[in-house]
Design a protein around this nucleic acid. Structure first.
Lengths: 220, 220
DNA sequence: AATTAAATTTAGACAAATCTAAAAATTTGT
DNA sequence: ACAAATTTTTAGATTTGTCTAAATTTAATT
């Protein structure tokens, strides 16, 4: 049986490990979890004992097969709960994270599989992130950051990289939502801001925004 | 902010306090929570500090106004989640308790109020126990134990006193469910067992069973 | 009322998860 | 390659919730 804290560490290591192929550093974990590196070291030893991570002192960590499966289980739960909150309880996409952080630790396979069914086996959460199935399988959607496509590109808004409430509320204020058709009209060389057409309306978008919006290429 | 453990103590004190008007004893709490009396004493001191219980050493405890409100909040969450599990996720009434014990500790007022709405503001949980509203208000249903009514009584099955999985499964096996019409045909003096008519079928019921089934008087 | 029994509390210890401060290993820069 | 900077680990302390064993208070019995 895993403690809540152990689960949070495993999840964090998984998330950091996704980008970049090297081992995850103690400091990176500490920073993301807002804790001290010494605490991280203690926990890594324990997780290593339990065969959830490969750990050699001073060399960083990576998840074992068991650790990966565990992480995917937690992420599955987190994202399914997010869908539940939005689809069934009318939460907005910027409100779901905190509550899902709590719900993801509820232990009941039956609960999660039934929830999956209730929601009609969703493939993506409200931020466009993929939901692993009961076996931990999921396909990363073929998508690109809006900041990395050339002028003239058209596509559909399918996800966000930064899913902080601040960013999501910003998108809401500017009426940018997942599923919107989007077209890049102009790229400003000076500050890399973009002029785009979203849902028929024209909009000026900073580079920072564009580098946190995923689009699926295609469409007219 | 309350810890999970504190919440469990408050809930237990509330449940014991319901039956009987005297202060709740340390041992009673320890037994129900399957912990040691010394641990209970430690926690009572802490809860007393927080003004959740009235505690004088060697004299037992009772909940303060704040403690009662807190308990009702937890019970509201527990019972709403039980309804959710049965109504939306097709759990059976003997499966809900364990999971609800976890879900009741999720902290989010919005979550609970929205859940309440999704379930259409239920007044009773799957075992017939009343669900407090957002202000902690609920009315105890007018009901009697089947073991305490005379021959000839008719009524409707509205709740169970013992909601252990074992008892609930027993009821399922004998096709006894909440909402069933019930009539007491005979009371055996020797062992206080009853002959009853439930949903058209005749059944012999032990005293122990009858003393754990609530009925609402009336009907034909 | 005195003694015994039962319930409750205290004292001291322990495991989990964290922290601070200091030591050790690694990496970086010249 | 060696000193300096950075990262990571160790050592020891703290908090929370629990335990055992012993002491204390209350209740029961004769």
């Amino acid at each position: 049986m895993m403690t809540r804290s152990e689960e949070n560490y495993i999840k964090t290591i998984f998330h950091i490990g996704r980008q970049g192929t090297e081992a995850v550093s103690t400091n990176a974990i500490a920073e993301l979890m807002e804790t001290k590196p010494s605490s991280v070291t203690d926990m890594l030893k324990k997780l290593s004992e339990k065969d959830l991570v490969n750990y050699k002192r001073y060399q960083g960590v990576s998840l074992t097969e068991l650790g990966s499966r565990t992480a995917l289980g937690i992420i599955r739960k987190h994202r399914l709960w997010e869908v539940f909150l939005v689809d069934k309880l009318e939460f907005t996409w910027d409100e779901v994270h905190e509550v899902a952080e709590q719900l993801e630790h509820i232990k009941s396979d039956k609960l999660i599989d039934r929830l999956d069914k209730l929601l009609d086996y969703p493939k993506f959460d409200p931020h466009g992130d993929p939901i692993p199935d009961r076996h931990g399988e999921f396909k990363e959607r073929d998508r690109k950051l809006l900041s990395e496509v050339p002028i003239g590109t058209t596509g559909i808004c399918v996800g966000v990289k930064d899913s902080s409430a601040m960013f999501l509320k910003f998108l809401d204020r500017h009426h940018i939502a997942l599923g919107n058709q989007i077209k890049v009209l102009e790229i400003e060389e000076f500050d890399n801001s973009l002029q785009v057409e979203i849902g028929g309306r024209n909009l000026q978008i900073s580079h920072l925004i564009a580098s946190n919006l995923y689009i699926k290429l295609g469409g007219s």
